[in-house]
Amino acid sequence: MMTIPGARRATLIDCASGLAVAAAGREDLVDQHEDAAGATDVVRAVLSSPALSATPTGDDIEEIIVSGTGGYHLLVLTGADFDGHLFVHLLVDRENGNLALARLQMHRLVQEITDGRHDR
């Protein structure tokens, strides 16, 4: 994940506990545990809000993008069911990164993670 152009930090997060499973990248930005807790709060807020659904039956949220002045926070979920799944928080530098490319590569990597998990 850190080979994605502009990637500054990546954290793999357990949805149920809100804890970091793994992290890479710049530690000076935020501690991996703070990163996991804050990102989990965002995901929970989005998933629990009917106002953020585009269909009457609800959407299966795949990703959440938060734009900041210095970069993009890309939260990619591994499945529609929040409990028992993982998600990835990738921080992409605005000047050196490409959000569209990061999204494509992250979805491919998350697919590899979930495919590997089901093979066990």
Rank of each mutant, 00 (worst) to 15 (best):
D31V: 00
D28R: 11
A45F: 11
L29K: 05
A54V: 08
V30R: 08
D41V: 10
V21R: 15
Q32E: 08
L19N: 04
S49N: 15
P56S: 12
A23V: 13
D59I: 01
A51C: 06
A24E: 15
A37E: 14
A39Q: 08
V46L: 00
G38Q: 07
S53M: 10
L52R: 03
V30G: 01
A24F: 04
A54H: 09
P50F: 03
V42N: 05
A37S: 15
A54C: 09
A23E: 14
A39C: 11
A54E: 09
E34V: 12
S53W: 07
R26Q: 15
P50Q: 05
L52K: 02
V42C: 09
T40W: 01
L19C: 03
S53C: 12
L47I: 08
A20W: 01
A20E: 05
P56G: 07
A22H: 15
A24H: 14
D35M: 10
L29E: 07
D28T: 14
E27W: 01
S49R: 04
V46S: 00
P56A: 11
L29S: 02
D28P: 04
T55G: 07
G38F: 08
R26C: 13
V21H: 12
G58K: 02
A23M: 08
V42M: 11
A22L: 13
E27S: 14
A37C: 10
S48M: 00
S49V: 01
A23F: 14
E27Q: 11
A45P: 03
P50I: 08
L29I: 13
V21Y: 09
